[in-house]
Simulated scan of single mutants.
Amino acid sequence: MILEAAILNVIPGNETQFENDFATAGQYISVIKGYIKHSLHKCIEQPNQYLLLVEWETLEDHTIGFRQSPQYLEWKKLLHLYYDPFPLVKHYAEV
């Protein structure tokens, strides 16, 4: 299992709409081969910052399977306009 982690900095004032659109975007990621689950966490100290965690069976399920899919284009269309700066995404393996 691979854990994808991304800190999402949302343009201030757009948090509620981002959360609504993120809930909609879940339908696009959840149908991808190798997807296990995802969760979104809101930062307490900085309310426009979120932590996205996604579990994948393999790294390629995310980097190729999702990012090269039509579903990713829909995800991107819904969510990428909220980020400033664009998130840095990292992948982790359990030790």
Rank of each mutant, 00 (worst) to 15 (best):
Y82L: 05
F86Y: 11
H62M: 09
L53S: 09
A23S: 08
K42W: 06
Q68M: 10
A93M: 14
T16V: 15
S30I: 07
A25G: 14
C43V: 03
Q27F: 00
A23D: 09
H91M: 11
K76A: 08
E19K: 04
K90T: 07
Q46C: 15
C43M: 10
P47F: 13
L59F: 06
N48A: 10
L78I: 07
S39F: 02
N14T: 13
I64M: 10
N9E: 15
K37P: 10
M1I: 14
Y50T: 06
R67N: 04
H41K: 01
E74H: 02
G34K: 02
S39R: 12
P12N: 06
L53Y: 14
V89T: 08
L51D: 02
N20P: 09
H38R: 04
D21K: 06
E94C: 10
L79G: 14
P12A: 08
T63S: 09
F86H: 08
T24V: 03
R67Y: 06
H38C: 02
M1T: 03
P47G: 02
M1P: 00
V95H: 10
H80A: 14
Y83M: 00
S30F: 01
P47C: 14
T58H: 12
N20Y: 11
I11G: 02
W75Q: 06
Q27G: 15
M1A: 04
E15T: 09
K33Y: 09
N9I: 07
I64N: 13
H91F: 15
D21P: 05
H38Y: 13
E94S: 13
H80T: 08
I7N: 07
H41A: 15
Y50V: 01
D61S: 03
L81A: 15
P85G: 05
H62W: 01
L52H: 01
G13H: 11
Y92P: 01
Q68D: 14
F22P: 02
E94D: 14
P12F: 15
E94Y: 14
P12C: 09
Q27W: 01
P87W: 00
V31W: 11
Q49S: 14
A23K: 13
Q17C: 01
